[in-house]
Structure formats: structure tokens, C-alpha cells
Write a protein that binds this DNA or RNA. Sequence first.
RNA 1: GGCGCCAUGGUGUAAUCGGUUAACACGUCGCCCUCUCAAGGCGAAGAGUACGGGUUCGAUCCCCGUUGGCGCUACCA
Length: 481
Amino acid sequence: MPEKPPRVRFAPSPTGYLHVGGARTALFNWLFARHFGGTLILRIEDTDFERSSDAMVEGILAGMRWLGMDWDEGPFHQSQRLELYRETAQKLLTGGHAYPCFCTREELEVRRAEAVAAGRPPMYDRRCRRLTLEQIAGRRAAGEAATIRFAVPESGVTAFEDAVVGTVEFANAELEDFVLLRSDGIPTYHLSVVADDVEMGMTHVIRGADHISNTPKQVLQYRALGAPLPVFAHVPLILGPDKTRLSKRHGATSVISYREMGIVPEAFRNFLALLGWTPGEGGAGREVFPSDELIGLFTLEGISKSNSVFDPDKLAWFNTEYIRAYPAERLLPLVEEEWAQVGFTPDRPREEVLAAIELTKTRARSLKDFAGAFRGYFGDDFAYDTAAVTKFLNDPAVPGMLRELARRYEGAGEFTEASAEAVLRGFAEEKGVKAGLLINGARVALTGQAVAPGLFAVMVALGRARVARRLAAAPQAVALA
RNA sequence: GGCGCCAUGGUGUAAUCGGUUAACACGUCGCCCUCUCAAGGCGAAGAGUACGGGUUCGAUCCCCGUUGGCGCUACCA
């Protein structure tokens, strides 16, 4: 439990869209900050100019907004904070914790290859670490470019306490003298993260477990800089169904693609939160947690140590749960987005649209359904599903009976679920057919679909006029075949 | 290869100080309901906790080893 309001950050690299792993890292940071009344900082790690782009930054921000996450400071761009990194490198240099290295990329590559061939670990051999001041001055004067490397202690261990994994220890002999500043003066990740995390006063660093091996290199810098260590919390990775790291091969990995699949953002957030984290006592036995509850329940203690597998079925389940639980008013804006995408406009008053959403939402698997299978509830611009027609309007006598039934409904009198049912059942009896035959046929005629809520509820939602019109226009299976 | 992290049903996770018929949810299967399909209700199958050794009266839980998965091993992040 932090005693002071914590300061945490989400620091994506804009070399790709916001993927599910990054989104979960962001979510954990966000939940943590909100739970403890802390501050979430958004920092764009764009020091790799070739691979970074503004479009990716936009995509990442869009993904965060879609998931309902906000931030308190930033976005800061590392590309605009170069001065800080150079100063930090200089500090390390003057403190004797770093040194210039004149080895070229080519030389390094050759030596690495040799080391590997000889069965030695391919670490930098530290030859420039032994350069004298005169040699350095001489080579600088000669115009040789240099990187700045951190001087890792040659013995001993570097350890840190991880909030999820516990104590993690690395032998310093395993750590190479990593590059802090490239020869063009641009910092590497190792330098920029710690420079920023120190300068921005981060109290907790919550990030993917893929960074655990980098952590000792960062701890060494904190020490050299005389800066207090943040609490590290390394979150296990998310894997695909085949238990390998989630990648494009597994299908959708971009957060935005889930929006495009008709997933409700809060459902996705709920699903993501439970991937590698479980609420304690307060959430026992439940899994559906709206955002506020997630915030109230979230602590680092609940983060699990092992990797988790992304299960699309479970996500689909959360999605149906949320769609079903949302009041129509809340669903409407989400549904309208879907309509906009397919160019559909409801031709019914708002009240009726809301009622139709309320009625259909229990069968929705995705928001897409409202712009697809459920279109007939919102307007006359819908199509008949051929499979449904084949299945339930196959009997050539049915359309004729439905036309006749349509006239029964046209008459005056009340039009309620009960009355609509009585009319249909009475009519079926007259004709000597099973009510189910007409009910199933009518469903297709009215909605275009084989699947729908109870028929008489559908009739009431559609209204007498539409019911009569659509029954009269019932398609023939043969005509469509 | 080296180093690091991890290891409970198909999946996500539970299981106070080591003592439970190893629990819940998703998924799967069956039944009920029924005008379709979901939902809902009821029920079932599915792990003896990766494997092997310890420690202990007793280990999912502690220790060691093995195996496996993942990560890191760049002038990427």
C-alpha cells in the first residue's frame, strides 16, 4: 500500500498499434493510479525515429480512449526531451559510471560473431573502458564518433524486489556494458527510461515481464544517479491459444480491431483486467466488474506470476453480458456507430428504437448484430436471410397463409402480445395447421431472421402496420432459390 | 548456448499458518423451458495440482533437480 499518492506511467513505443498486451499494461497502471488516487503519465517512447510514427501515436491514444482510460500528464514525447538524456549521460560520465566507446557497429558485429563461434557469450568486451583520458581526447579530436556505455561492475550481483515476482537477482558478470547514448547523441531505451522515470518521479513501474531482464541495468543507473528506486511490478505476458506469445498470427492483436468486431469497450476492459489479475476477497466468485468496481478492487497483490492465454470465447461471453446488462440508452450511441459504418439510418422514432434495442439486446453476440441481423427492427431497409427463408418458409402454403393472417391484424382493436398471439393461434386452428408453422414463418417474414426474441413481443415492437405489411410481403423459398 | 521468470482441468483463476471430496467462471455435453435462437434452471464430464526426489504425521503450498513454456541476450523498445 503506497503511503503517498503513487505516480505511474504507461510508456508505449509508437512502432505499432496498441496491442492487447500493451493495453493491459496501460489498464493495470490506470487502475492502480485510480485506485490509490495517484497520477498516470503517458509517455511516448519514440527515440527510434525510423520505426516510430505519429500515426501510431494517434492509434495508441485512440485505443486508450476507446477503453475509457485517461491520463493526468502528457503525452510526453521522448524525442522532445533529448536534452535531459544527454545531461543524464553526462552526469553518469563525470561520476565515472560511464565511458565513451569508439568501437564501430561493424567491429562489434564481427567480434560478436567470433565470440559466438568460439562458444563465448557475445558480450561487449569492454575494451574502450580501459582507454586513458589522453586516448579519448585524441580520438575525439580525430573526429571519431563514440557511444556512451554504462560501466557495469564486473562482479557482485544486482538485485531488486519485484512486487509480483519477488526478489530477482542477476550476476553483474552477466550484464554487459550497455549503450546509453548512441553515437548520434540519441539515447537508447535503457537511458531514456531511467532518466524519465527519475525526472518524472515515478513511484511504481508496472510493465510487461519482458522487461525484467532489463531491470538490473536500470537499477544500476538509479544507484549511480543516487536516485531512489521505484517499486517494480512485472506483469506476465499474454499468450495466444497455442501458448506462444500473442502475435498477428493469432488474429486480432490490435485493440482497435476489437472495436471493429463489435466488442463493447467495457467488456474488453473487464476481460483484460482478469487476464493475469484476480480481485481479492471483495470480488470472490464474480467476474463481471464494471470499471468503478475494478478500480476499487485493483491492487498489485492480485497480479499472477504466470503467463496467461487470451481466450476469445471468454471475451465473447463478457461482451454478451455487457450488452445484455446495458440499458438501451447506453447502448444506443454504440449502436449508432455501427449503423453509421454500414450507412444505415433507422426510420423509426427514438422511443421505438430504444424499445427495439431493449428487446433484441438479449440475443446480441456483438454490436455488429444491431447493424446486421437486427436491422429489420429499426427500419425497413433489411434483407431476408436465405437460410432462414429456406428453413421456415419452405412450405409453399405458408406465405399465402401469412398474407391472410396479415389482414386479420389490420383490423381495429387492441394490438398486444396477448391479442396478437390469440389471433395467430386462432387462425392456425382454423387452417388446421400447427401454430409453430406460422410462428416460425412469421418470424422470418417480420425480421428476415431465423433467430429472434419471442414472436409476439417482436410484433408489438414492430407495430401493427409494419407487421401487416411484412406478413403480406412474406417471401417464397422457391422464389429466392 | 548463457542468464532470468513461470508451471493447478481445454482456457482464466481459487484454495487462510502445509490438513479441502482441489473451488468458481468461460468453453464442452445432457436435460428442462419452448414459436426459433440465446438467456435462464438443473445436471455431467474434465485436473489428484508438469515430472522426479526430498522435508514433514501430512504438501498444490517449503527445498532440490529435471522437463517444458516464455522472456532477455542490438548504437530496438
